[in-house]
Computed example of a mutant assay.
Amino acid sequence: MPPRPTKGSDLSSAIDVMLPYYGDVALMKKAVESVLSQSHTDLRLVVLDDGYPDPEPARWFASLSDPRVTYLRNDVNVGANGNYRKALGLVEAEWFVMMGADDVMRPGYLSAVGRAAREGVDIIQPRVEILDEYDRRILPLADRVKAWLSPSVPPGGSVAAGEPLAVSLLRGNWAYFPAVAWRTAAVRRVGFRTDLDVAQDLALLLDIVADGGRLALLPDTLFDYRRHSRSDSSVRAVDGRRFAEERRFFQQEAKRFRRMGWKRAARAARLHVTSRMNAAATLPQALKAKRSPMPLLTHVIR
């Protein structure tokens, strides 16, 4: 373990880092160590092991002497969505992060969140860089598109809200869910949708925005987000399940925003251009894997 940092805090109370876990043990340890190395030390880390079939995590957490860490193991696997909802129910602090179990917080992340939290916002998104499963810095096409679509952020940061923010997110979801800090009350007002797996992060963002929430964009790179070639979302993309879910989701959002009178947001949801572009870009992978291209073609055309 790295040495614990000296005491210091930018928040008047702790921030909860919720870490739903299922996967690579070594990467999970790196994620935990990055949390415990934060310059903002007033935190609580809660790890929710979703029944990963390896005894090493339980042994390793038992060896830690840091009182800020709580390790819980589910008796049965509840899946990603179920584990997120369980984690939300365990949050105690005013602000929390739902961190990926293989991502890396840079040391100043929580301090920056603490400063931004004073600005009357509900969501905080820093800049991120991308790692692959071998700790190499990469910039895949999807992340180049995200960078192109994301709003420009001045040196002092910026705040977005309302229909313009909804339109921006619907044109292309440039947020990185594990790197986002959330005001607990705002998330609990809307909750995680139970019928989504891949699109649940965008759904939560849009639900909070539709509820009047405000999002702070930070100018500094404070988080390393990891992409895997074998991730669940990659598998779901190739076989078409991801895009079937996204198509249903965007249809629902178009209806919701039309009812609200947010016509530009409804149109952006109806067109879901980047989602359809992503399906088109996935076609070669599907053909290589000898999967039927029809689910992807259906999404592109519709």
Rank of each mutant, 00 (worst) to 15 (best):
L45D: 12
K30H: 08
P53Y: 10
P55F: 10
V46R: 15
L43S: 05
D50R: 10
V47G: 06
V35R: 14
K29E: 14
L45W: 00
P53F: 04
A31C: 15
K30V: 08
D49K: 08
P55C: 09
G51V: 08
L27H: 06
Q38C: 04
V46T: 15
A31G: 12
P53M: 04
D50A: 03
V46I: 15
L43Y: 01
R44Q: 03
V35Y: 11
D42Y: 03
P55V: 01
E56V: 08
D49S: 04
L36M: 14
S34K: 13
E56W: 06
T41D: 15
Q38R: 07
P53D: 05
D49M: 01
P55Q: 09
S34H: 04
A31D: 11
K29P: 07
E56G: 02
T41A: 12
G51I: 02
D42H: 14
D50E: 10
P53H: 05
P57W: 06
V32F: 09
L27R: 14
L48E: 05
M28F: 02
Y52G: 09
A31V: 11
L48H: 12
Q38L: 01
V32C: 13
D42I: 05
D50P: 08
D50T: 00
P55L: 06
E56I: 03
L27A: 15
Q38T: 06
S39A: 13
D42C: 07
V35K: 02
S34C: 08
V47A: 00
L45C: 09
P57I: 10
V32P: 13
L48K: 07
V35Q: 14
L43C: 05
D42M: 03
A31M: 11
L45M: 13
L48R: 02
L48G: 00
D42P: 02
L45N: 13
D54E: 02
P57F: 05
